[in-house]
């Protein structure tokens, strides 16, 4: 077992022992903290399983290979569209996006399209949006998406122009 894992177990176990002890001895601070915890767990349990089932089904049904194929061929304004579609179906966050974006850039994709890909893999990922909508409401997610997509595209075009011919890609 790794050191982190042991620390985790000790912390979590320590917390619950503290709560149990508080309930037995009627220790007010512990009881209040425990009440907080139970409240959170209750509201999480009503949302968490459903959100994960939706994400699971999404991953099973979406064929990423088709999307990647389209992205490879797309040019012009369609490039932005496919950059967003591709990133929306990405599973990982920025850690996955940077290497992929870099690889696409080396293959000759336009900088503005690459930046759109990075920006929208942060903001429009569907699994993440399902999660967001489940917890913060559909209204929140729809407003956020509708505002972020144009902003990401415009800013990418802007930065793309700014750095035109000025950028060397690290090998």
């Amino acid at each position: 077992m790794s050191k982190d894992k042991i620390i985790n177990i000790v912390l979590i176990a320590g917390y619950f022992i503290f709560l149990l002890f508080s309930y037995i001895t009627d220790f007010r601070i512990g009881i209040e903290i425990g009440g907080n915890f139970i409240d959170f767990v209750k509201s999480m349990l009503t949302i968490l399983p459903i959100a994960f089932i939706l994400i699971g089904l999404f991953e099973v049904w979406i064929d990423r290979k088709t999307v990647e194929k389209y992205f490879g061929h797309a040019s012009g304004y369609r490039g932005y569209f496919w950059a967003i579609v591709l990133s929306s179906t990405t599973v990982g966050g920025a850690y996955v996006a940077f290497p992929v974006a870099h690889a696409l850039f080396k293959k000759g994709a336009k900088l503005s399209i690459i930046l759109t890909y990075i920006g929208s893999s942060a903001l429009t990922r569907i699994p993440m949006t399902i999660f967001e909508a489940s917890f913060l409401g559909l209204k929140f997610s729809i407003i956020r998406l509708l505002v972020s997509i144009p902003l990401v595209i415009f800013s990418s075009i802007f930065i793309g122009r700014l750095f035109k011919n000025k950028i060397r890609v690290n090998p």
């Binding site: 940077f98 290497p99 974006a101 870099h102 930046l115 990075i118 920006g119 942060a122 956020r144 505002v147 972020s148 902003l151 990401v152 800013s155 802007f158 930065i159 700014l162 750095f163 000025k166 950028i167 060397r168 890609v169 690290n170």
Partner: peptide, 22 residues
Amino acid sequence: EYFGWKLSLTRNLVSYLICIII
């Protein structure tokens, strides 16, 4: 490491602005 510090700094600053607008 991937895109150089100038581009990365610009992207992050512009992104911050986008977040505030959202």
